[in-house]
Structures are given as C-alpha cells and as structure tokens.
Design a protein around this nucleic acid. Sequence first.
DNA 1: AACTATTTTTAGGCTTGTCTAAAAATAGTC
DNA 2: GACTATTTTTAGACAAGCCTAAAAATAGTT
Lengths: 220, 220
Amino acid sequence: MYSFTEENYLKTIYHLSQQKHLENVTTNAIADLLQTKAASVTDMLKKLADKKLILYVKYQGVNLTEKGFKVAIGTVRKHRLWEVFLFDKLKFGWEEVHEVAEQLEHIQSDYLIDKLDTFLNYPSVDPHGDPIPGKDGTIKSQTLTLLIDCKKNAQVVISGVKEHSVAFLQRLNEMELCLGKKLKIHEINEFDRCMIVMIDKEAKILVSNEVAKNILVSEA
Amino acid sequence: MYSFTEENYLKTIYHLSQQKHLENVTTNAIADLLQTKAASVTDMLKKLADKKLILYVKYQGVNLTEKGFKVAIGTVRKHRLWEVFLFDKLKFGWEEVHEVAEQLEHIQSDYLIDKLDTFLNYPSVDPHGDPIPGKDGTIKSQTLTLLIDCKKNAQVVISGVKEHSVAFLQRLNEMELCLGKKLKIHEINEFDRCMIVMIDKEAKILVSNEVAKNILVSEA
DNA sequence: AACTATTTTTAGGCTTGTCTAAAAATAGTC
DNA sequence: GACTATTTTTAGACAAGCCTAAAAATAGTT
Ligand SMILES: [Mn+2]
Ligand SMILES: [Mn+2]
Ligand SMILES: [Mn+2]
Ligand SMILES: [Mn+2]
C-alpha cells in the first residue's frame, strides 16, 4: 500500500509532532531525523500532500491528516511488535532491536502482524517501555516520571527510557539497570544531583544525573 | 550489501540453474519467473556482471559466479528459515508462508538470521520439505521419489512437494495430506494411474495421478 | 544458403527518491 | 522599516529499476 519511504516520512512526522506538542513539524527537523537533505524532504512533502496524508502549507511546516496518522501509527505498531519479538524471542539486547526493527516494520502483511501479536501474547509495551498502538490505532499515553525528579526515599520501578541511543542503553546494561527493576532512592547529592540508589533491595549503586535524566519510572 | 532486486535476480538464476541442470540460464526464463520484461532483465544482467556476480555472454545466457552463488544461497537460506518461523511459530498454513517470506528474505542482518536459526532449533528443511542451506552455503541434495513412481504396497512418508502453488497446497490440505504423513499404496489403477492410499493406517483415500505427480516421498 | 520465427539487446523514456546550488521566503535585530 | 541570518523551496541532475518499440542476433526450416 505505502512505500518504505512514505512510511518512514509519516512515522518521523508522527514522532516529531508527539515530541514538540501541537506545533507544525518543520522541514529541517524531518531532514535531521531521516538523515537526508531539506530539498529531498520538500519534494516528498509535496507528494504526501497530494495523497492527502499530510496537510502542507509552503514554508509553514506539516501536520498529519487522519489518513496519514493511521499509516504512521500502524508503522509504529509494527516497529514495536517486532522489537518485542527480537527481545523476547530471539534474545536480542534492548540496544540491538531498533536497527533491525527499522527494516522489519516495512513488511506488508496485516495478517502477519495479527499472527505476530498473538504469538507475542498481545504485549502492551516494547522493550524500551514505549506503548504499542492497538490494531485500531489507539495508543495509551504514558504518565511516567523522570528518575531525576524523584524525591529521597521514593520507591519506583524502571518503566521506560527517554533516550534510545545504543550508548545509553549499553550504559544501563553495565549498571544492570533494565525495565522492571525496583529502585529505592537512598540519597541525592545536593551538588551534582547524582543519586545513590538501591536496586532490588540489594546493591547500592551511584547513578549520575545525566543517566537519571533519561530513565522513566513509575511508583513501585 | 545487496539490494532487494539484486537478491531476487540472483535467487531466480540459482533456482533456474538448479532446475534445468548445467545449462545457461536464459533472459526470458528469468523474465518469466520474476514477472518482468526481457529488456529489464538484460539491463540488470549487465549490472550483475559488472559486479562479478554472474558470468554473462550476450545472447548466450548467464551463470552464477562463486560470489553470486553465495548471495543466492544466502537468500534461499533466509527465505526458508522465515518460512519455518511463519509455519512453526506463527501457525501460518504451508500455502501462506511463501508470499510473506518473499519480503522477509531481504531483511539485512546476519546477526538476525543466526538468532532466528537458533530460535527455530536449526531446522534442516522448510515447511515444503526443501532443504535449508547452512550458514557456510552448503546444501544437502535430496533423494526423494515421486509418489506416482511408487509401487503397489510401498510404505512411504510425505517429505516434500514438487509443485508449490497455493492451489495445490490447499488441495493437499483438503485431503489432509501434509509433510510427515505415512502412506501405504493400496492400489494403483491401471487406466488413469490414480492411487488408493491408506493414510496413517487409517483412512483410505483416492489420490489422482495429477496430485501424485507432485508429491515427494521417502521410504517409511 | 536463404528465409522465418523467436529470443535478446538497444534506444529512449518514465517514476521514485535522492542530491547540490541557487533563489525565495521567513524570522530576528537594530 | 531595512538588513541579515536562517529556513525552505525551486531548478536541474542523477541512480536504480522498470517500460515499449525497434533493431540485431540466433535458431529452425526448407
Ligand atoms: Mn525503535
Ligand atoms: Mn522501542
Ligand atoms: Mn517459498
Ligand atoms: Mn518453501
């Protein structure tokens, strides 16, 4: 139905409009995220607008139409289901799943995705804690807190990450921090806001504020 | 490394050179199988020859080089592993797996294929009984007999199919014939060579010669 | 060997998605 | 309001793959 490239543009526009709430998505922002040139983006925006997938006003940025939103959210759904498959079944690390999912998300077969969803037992979040949109396009908005904003003695569970880079996720691997780990904040340093955190009621570790800024938690 | 299209051409040349033993593969044969035009094939053959993936002599057809063979066999490996995944894990019918595997075979990640192979427990054949090439590019040649060539009272196991069309595979589904079924040939009609066959020592069914011509069996 | 039918290649063109360089529009500053 | 910096669009080009129509080569027949 839609090409590899069209799906990628729509998904990118979706992610950007989520990030920077309600504003129009700009040409340069899309070019940055897709690692392409602004001129190429302008070309594609015209084509997507012709197909009624986006609302595009020259020089004013773009927004997804209902139709474009459905394609975007469908692509996100496919991406995240594949990530779950790679992580749960094939035992990929959470820092490894994204790259391959970028390819798998473009396989065209609704039947396949239904079967995959069933096989994975209808997961609600991906290996990074991001919600998986339903078949109908609905998506649960998360109400998570940043670890850095938690108070002393708070007891929380790691439920997501704000940063998705391989380097950051590997850093968390080294610290044995992953989704589902229960933390208790033992101490917060006043000077640099680094934290001493107790994991699973066992080890105490030091979490830099740079790391704590990118970990999402919910109440334990 | 190699594009979707390049992999498809090389795989097609491989299949054709398997079929019609040792002869050069012709432009029209490739065009037929790929559902494209002969002129397009000629264009691509020049490009593949430039990349040393095939030996191409104008008007004389083509052959895979060592390098091209490796790409082709690798693509076949990916295709068949994905078919096993779809059949075993996602519970696709054996008539449904091919279409989706045609897409999945082009996902580029050796790491993924290794993990998938492990997850599937190193299968040696795909859902149609075709052998899965090893990581090193070796492939076991099959020594199977056509059901139609079996003698009266022979006891055999269904181990493959010669015809891969959806219609044929569905026909076998209706007859409850699938890989692994044990058959005993009860009677062969002299006039039309249709067979009366006993399945799993239970039901007796009639197998037309048209069907028997396309079932591959090994000794029970 | 000549003629014919078939196969294959060439020539020229189209679409998708990309690029660079230049022009136009917008935003920011005095 | 004019000037400047930044963003965005246009113009023109290119590669990958595909097409049709015409030309060239090959194969088959007498
Ligand atoms: Mn991802
Ligand atoms: Mn994710
Ligand atoms: Mn197949
Ligand atoms: Mn198969």
